[in-house]
Design a protein around this nucleic acid. Structure first.
Lengths: 366, 366
DNA sequence: AGCGTTCCTGCAATCGTTTGCAGTCTATCG
DNA sequence: CGATAGACTGCAAACGATTGCAGGAACGCT
């Protein structure tokens, strides 16, 4: 069917080995044959068979990206970024969707290594640490967005503590003192960290933390709806809601619409992670941007580095953080009088540095 | 590193061939050895190497999906559907993003067949017909959403003429007579067909077609913005706008927000293709649903069928249509008096049949 | 008992590459 | 002029599976 190396070799009246060496550019053939072979190969339309090559070399030129879904805007841009960068380097991306389900994740992982992928970027569920750890011996792995605590894998995280802190502080500065928080499950890194950032901002402002204002739940719109209702039905409802569980945002918006609550007049709303339509929504929704694009780029960088470094041990495993950014739009408003001018430095609004800030912290494990 | 068939064979004291036959279940081995072998294989943790197998059999268990982007909601659900269905059958999905760029498409296509994919679902740009046609000899291909006119490939399309007709008629029934249309490029199937549906609805209602109300453009938000502005700046602006270019929707919404135009009071708005947030947007946006989920499912069905049928010629190439559905929400309102009660049958609102209607039309080509 | 079937198994080739090893040829040097 | 290094090249063995062919055992039949 398709033209093989043998065909090229025959046409050039050389052996397959020579043809192989000439075309892969090992420098072990004479300049002349090399040029002649490349010419003939092109004429014949020869394309090396990656499967055969893979069998011999153990490499597939396939890199997998395992995310939870494609509904989450962050995952969308991550998939696009990873695909684009890998393609430029001659890799194909295997996109897998695990649905945040440990069983599916486990399944997928084994099929992926079966396929001898050259690398893996994974948003772990956190329940398959042992398996991931084992696979990491064979394949370079980078964790993205979430850490799997049972492993010591290289991990690229959003700076969720900072992001939640930034967002909460913003609301406080606008005069809000009762701030509802709808946050992700507390058995995930991001869930815990965002909560901690929220708490820190409140503490710093001397505002007591009211547990009835804090609701955590699964990553689905329904969470947003029920949590939002609960908050609004409180005897003393919050004046602002920080939806720090991205998937819950739609649900929260629905409840707000249902109840005819005006944003930002009746209620200030701040969300986490950007989505294209937040900007076109009316009013445009203020957000804390987790930097999905930068996260993906960094993950690819790290992965490529590990793939090049091949066998050079597991040492130097780091954890990376991509800084969060507050993007003010029109869904949060000033209330009351001036914000309780805190004694701290009256820092101007966070600098709009285009490049996101990176902070690498050596993780001393192993 | 990993355990091979040879290891299993040795452990069982049989030849590799027997091991292979036993484990692949060809029925050419005795019941006893088969069971023994499967047991031993499991104990040893044997996993067949798809690369080696692929080299011999010429199959990779890889199926590619080539779409333009992941921003478009339809492509998102298609990717999710295709991935889920294929995984259930033991295939891995290669997701490629071509950016609607012929050159990238061409590139990607060649690398994909290099990888010996077993099947391909592609949203064609329409500029690489010759290449697609050639590849179709080696690989089962199904076109999705768009037709490539230079080929005679099996194609799964949305029923765009019907969808645009339905949408336009809806607006007419609400009393609108000046209906702006923002539609996709006219060198694409969907672009032309949606325009034709719009025109048909107008004709049927006896409303003259005003060319100044019809704007076509590229699949980006900016198109929506500029087109929307143009329409609103008309001496006699439309009372309703039908945004039948999905990607343009965001741009249109922005302009509407900028100008403080109230939907649906000042202007009725109808969009094409569903997005999760259309429903949560305020007001909720009425749409014509193209049935992305059903499109993807049908495409997978067709592809699998072709993959099974293997060599059985190119005959019986069909074109499939997945019916569109009008979903009324809150962005269109009745204007004027009663709609000009047309003589035609006063059909009740389109039946809400859950299963989308399919109409297959034999394409007589070749 | 002899013979043909049926059933199971093993040998060895094959898929398209890569790669260690050994051989050939030329050129250079003593 | 002969030896030797160096530069290319070819042979053949991998990689891990599948598969046509043939051999051997067991069985039933005449």
């Amino acid at each position: 069917m398709s033209v093989t190396l043998k065909d090229v070799a025959q046409a050039a009246r050389v052996s397959v080995s020579t043809a192989s060496r000439a075309l892969t550019g090992t420098g072990l053939t004479s300049e002349r044959t090399q040029q002649r072979l490349t010419r003939i190969a092109r004429q014949l339309g020869y394309r090396p068979n990656p499967i055969a090559r893979g069998l011999k070399t153990g490499q597939s030129r396939l890199v997998a990206l395992l995310v939870h879904n494609l509904t989450n805007a962050s995952f969308q841009v991550m998939a696009e970024v990873v695909q684009a960068r890998l393609k430029a380097l001659g890799y194909q991306m295997l996109l897998c969707i695990g649905g945040d389900d440990p069983e599916q994740e486990s399944d997928t992982l084994t099929t992926l290594v079966d396929h001898r992928i050259d690398g893996l970027i994974v948003v772990p569920t956190g329940k398959n640490g042992a398996q991931l750890k084992a696979l990491a011996k064979d394949v370079p792995i980078v964790c993205l967005v979430r850490r799997d605590d049972a492993t010591d894998l290289e991990t690229v995280l959003a700076d969720d503590p900072q992001g939640a802190y930034l967002g909460t502080r913003h609301l406080i500065e606008l005069g809000h003192r009762r701030i509802g928080l709808i946050v992700g499950r507390q058995d995930t890194t991001s869930g815990r960290e965002r909560l901690s950032g929220y708490v820190r901002a409140l503490r710093e402002a001397g505002i007591p933390v009211d547990d009835t204002l804090i609701l955590a739940g699964h990553f689905v719109p329904e969470t947003g709806a029920t949590c939002c209702r609960t908050l609004l039905d409180l005897p003393r409802p919050p004046s602002a809601i920080f939806v720090a569980n991205h998937e819950a945002t739609l649900g929260a918006l629905r409840v707000i619409a249902e109840r005819n609550i005006a944003i930002p007049d009746d209620l200030s709303l701040l969300c986490y992670e950007d989505m294209p339509w937040f900007e076109w929504h009316r009013p445009a929704i203020s957000i804390v941007d987790n930097g999905a694009r930068d996260l993906a780029n960094l993950a690819v960088d790290r992965l490529l580095q590990r793939m090049d470094a091949k066998g050079s041990g597991n040492d130097g495993v780091r954890e990376y953080r991509v800084g969060a950014r507050l993007i003010k739009r029109d869904s949060c408003r000033q209330i009351n009088a001036a914000p309780p001018a805190r004694s701290g430095k009256p820092r101007s609004s966070p600098s709009r540095s285009s490049a996101s800030k990176l902070s690498a912290s050596k993780s001393a494990k192993v």
